[in-house]
């Protein structure tokens, strides 16, 4: 594996405000990384640093083998970027807009047609961008980021304005790119939808990296309890509770459902006991801590 992006102790200040503080990060080839954090945590600043749009006050950045601030044309050609709130000239059509960006990257007109089809704008391509919905503009934004088979894709809040079906389609596109060896960095608030797509999660807060690892890694580090839900046969709830020795550390969700929070060490034993009551327990659900919960955990840990 080769690393496509390498940041080493990068500091960026805006006046007195520190946007990124001693930030180090390595992104490998073929990796999908979720960059999460509050508004103003420094996510967009980080992406701009990787793009070379702003220069760091300290530290070094290496993107696809060169310093991005140098604006190496070869590097820029293999880089796709979708800004937060992507904007286009409203008077031009979708196809004209995409052709313009394709020409800048030295691609032919055939690419434009394929990409418009790919993001589902094949028929709307002849209409002005001004008539597009937010979701359609976002898709046009994604299409321009995909021009020229990028090796590094930087997506800043890419799924805002997309409906659930489109989101799914969007992540399929991202997955296909990753399988071809593209590094994909997605900054987002919508953590739940990235489960299953992100190989790694980087949590940022006030310009610092406070967590970095796969979702499983983060779960282990956080050692947060899993939630287990039991559905009992009607009227058997009380009996199940006494049998499993539950005393107050659980919640009744309904007449037939209870929820228990358990550390991973106790989990297997508990499921074993519960499964033994096959007449009374009809169903067992194990819910590992979601990305949202992990995120909250790490941010609270910082505050404490």
């Amino acid at each position: 594996m080769t690393s496509n992006v390498k940041l080493d102790a990068v500091v960026k200040r805006y006046g007195a405000r520190v946007a990124t503080d001693q930030f180090s990060l390595v992104l490998e080839e073929g990796e999908t990384i979720a960059l999460v954090g509050h508004n103003g945590a420094g996510k967009t600043t980080l992406i701009k640093l990787v793009l070379g749009l702003i220069r760091p006050d300290a530290g070094t950045i290496c993107v696809l083998g060169s310093d991005p601030a140098r604006g190496d044309a070869e590097v820029r050609r293999s880089l796709g970027y979708l800004p937060e709130n992507v904007a286009f000239n409203l008077a031009l059509t979708g196809r004209e807009t995409l052709s313009f960006y394709a020409r800048l990257k030295g691609e032919s007109g055939g690419v434009v047609r394929d990409l418009l089809e790919h993001v589902g704008l094949g028929e709307a391509g002849g209409r002005r961008v001004g008539t597009y919905s937010k979701g359609m503009r976002q898709r046009l934004g994604l299409a321009q980021a995909l021009i020229g088979k990028p090796r590094l894709l930087l997506l800043d809040e890419p799924t805002t304005g997309l409906d659930p079906a489109l989101r799914q389609h969007f992540y399929e596109i991202v997955r296909a790119l990753r399988d071809e060896g593209c590094t994909v960095l997605i900054s987002s608030h919508a953590l739940a939808e990235m489960e299953g797509y992100a190989d790694r999660v980087v949590i940022m807060d006030q310009g610092r990296k406070i967590a970095d690892g796969s979702i499983d890694d983060l779960r282990r580090i956080a050692s947060m309890p899993s939630r287990i839900r039991l559905r009992t046969a009607p009227g058997e709830l009380q009996q199940v509770e006494t049998h499993l020795g539950l005393n107050g550390c659980h919640r009744r969700l309904s007449d037939t459902t209870i929820e228990v929070n358990l550390a991973s060490s106790q989990k297997i034993q508990f499921i074993h006991h519960a499964a033994a009551l096959e007449d009374q327990v009809l169903d067992i659900d194990v819910l590992p801590p979601s990305l949202d919960e992990l995120y909250a955990h790490f941010l609270n840990g910082r505050a404490a």
Binding site: E74, Y81, N85, A87, K105
Partner: peptide, 12 residues
């Protein structure tokens, strides 16, 4: 309008 940010990420 935000179009410059995108333009500057292109090879020019």
């Amino acid at each position: 309008r935000g179009t410059m940010l995108l333009l500057l990420s292109y090879p020019l």
